[in-house]
């Protein structure tokens, strides 16, 4: 599985540790969130095990509310991909 995480990431700017919680964060140091009117493009590559010619690929876009245990699935797209023509 490969994944990408889209969210602003903040520290207290006194250390390099990312922090969670408004009362301890000071400023964003990185922002991978989805921006208005800007397409977020990704390219994932998978090397198939020897002998495998067909795979099912599932792409899942989910919103983690508070933490990954509280996940709202937004889109789930599955495609069968074959190397055979």
């Amino acid at each position: 599985m490969q994944s990408r995480h889209y969210h602003p990431q903040a520290t207290n700017e006194m250390s390099s540790k990312m922090l969670y919680g408004a009362q301890v964060k000071t400023a964003n140091i990185r922002d991978t969130s989805i921006q208005p009117y800007r397409t977020k493009e990704e390219s994932f590559e998978f090397i198939l095990p020897e002998g495998v010619r067909t795979v099912d690929i599932t792409v899942n876009l989910a919103y983690d509310v508070v933490n990954p245990d509280m996940r709202y699935n937004l889109h789930n797209i599955t495609r069968r991909v074959s190397l055979d023509r």
């Binding site: 969210h7 208005p36 590559e45 690929i57």
Partner: peptide
């Protein structure tokens, strides 16, 4: 089948994704 070097094809799958937002701000925030 990706050809990295002569005579050796590597089976590969590429998945390209595009997310577009109609929100008036970043998501999440």
């Amino acid at each position: 089948e990706w050809l990295l070097q002569a005579g050796k094809h590597i089976p590969k799958v590429v998945v390209n994704t595009k997310i577009n937002s109609s929100a008036g701000h970043r998501i999440p925030d």
